[in-house]
């Protein structure tokens, strides 16, 4: 008998709230948010206790020169030397790094956009993010059969951005902003520097392997030049305690080989999924999928 499971069953009788149900609460909150002046305060950061780098064991990786041409996400067959089915996690990641180096290299121009098509649960999402953050971008979402939504991301030019309310750009109104580049031009290109970069830009605790996995996911699902992508996977390969998991599926149902990042909690292990043949990064097991990633010239263009 499992009392927790029994309890879970009665818990499932209560559905998640719909946006309509939440609308009055959201309106109440928004009324307060819009009436609150910005406060130039800093938020306390966690003390850097237990300073231990997840990515500490990274050795410098030799990276080959890359080819320049048009961009696609998935590399062709890479002829990996270890069959994925019996591979070690570190070998899978090294294969992924080798495969990344065979991807066409494109340096995004400041006036271009990073196009991403991805799936998060049942939500399909397309985004065009300005490479330097100065152009207007767009996010288009559609969930399971329901209607789609579009939202403009105003570009930040000369420290000012258009004001958006809901999905409408308010004519003639601007507000202070900081450009949010859709592509980080400063990503390291070797594994050691990437390890340091990941440690510096981490979102979780310094010694949490699980949250390091989420950081790798975050960077892997954006556009990276081949050498940086290879460095990212090489840095990941040096993390101790990762496991290769066979026959996992990403958020879009594509099957692949998983790299499990252990969690100290009871659940929530992050499993990054790679294509078993091409070693292209696919997404996160059972939750998300990167379906397309490209550098394009204008919003609306998909590759």
């Amino acid at each position: 008998m499992d009392d927790l499971r029994l309890l879970q069953q009665v818990g499932q009788e209560i559905p998640l709230a719909t946006p309509d149900q939440l609308a009055p609460a959201r309106d109440r909150l928004l009324a307060v948010l819009t009436a609150t002046p910005p406060a130039p305060t800093t938020i306390r950061r966690d003390a850097r206790r237990g300073w231990r780098f997840v990515f500490g064991g990274v050795a410098a990786a030799g990276v080959a020169a890359a080819i320049v041409s048009v961009l696609v996400l998935a590399p062709d067959q890479v002829g990996g030397d270890v069959p994925a089915a019996r591979a070690e996690a570190s070998q899978v990641l090294r294969n992924a790094a080798a495969a990344a180096l065979r991807l066409p290299d494109t340096t995004p121009r400041p006036d271009q956009f990073i196009y991403t098509r991805s799936q998060q649960g049942r939500e399909l999402r397309e985004s065009w993010l300005s490479v330097d953050g100065t152009r207007n971008g767009l996010v288009r979402t559609a969930s399971g059969g329901g209607g789609g939504k579009e939202a403009v991301i105003p570009g930040c030019r000369n420290g000012r951005a258009a004001v958006v309310k809901g999905n409408n750009v308010l004519p003639g109104r601007t507000e202070p902003c900081t450009p949010a580049p859709g592509y980080r031009a400063d990503m390291p290109t070797d594994a050691a520097a990437m390890g340091a970069y990941l440690t510096e830009h981490r979102n979780g605790k310094v010694d949490s392997v699980n949250s390091a996995g989420k950081d790798v996911y975050y960077f892997a699902s954006g556009y990276l030049r081949p050498q940086s992508r290879a460095a990212l996977y090489e840095a990941a390969a040096a993390v101790p305690g990762l496991r290769a998991v066979e026959n996992v599926t990403d958020g879009a149902g594509r099957s692949g080989i998983g790299i499990a990042w252990p969690s100290t909690g009871r659940s929530g292990e992050v499993v990054l999924v790679f294509d078993p043949k091409s070693y292209a990064f696919l997404g996160v097991s059972e939750s998300s999928a990167v379906l397309a990633l490209a550098v394009v010239d204008r919003v609306g263009q998909t590759g």
Binding site: L33, T34, T36, P37, P38, A39, P40, T41, T42, I43, S127, L129, G133, G137, V139, A151, I153, P154, C156, A161, V163, V164, E175, C177, T178, A180, G182, N203, Y218, G222
Partner: peptide, 23 residues
Amino acid sequence: RVKAVDVSTLTDAAVIERSVRDP
């Protein structure tokens, strides 16, 4: 997502930090 930055790419922590100056 919300305005100006694609906040969708930020963690909760980064959004909350941002909300101090951008409620």
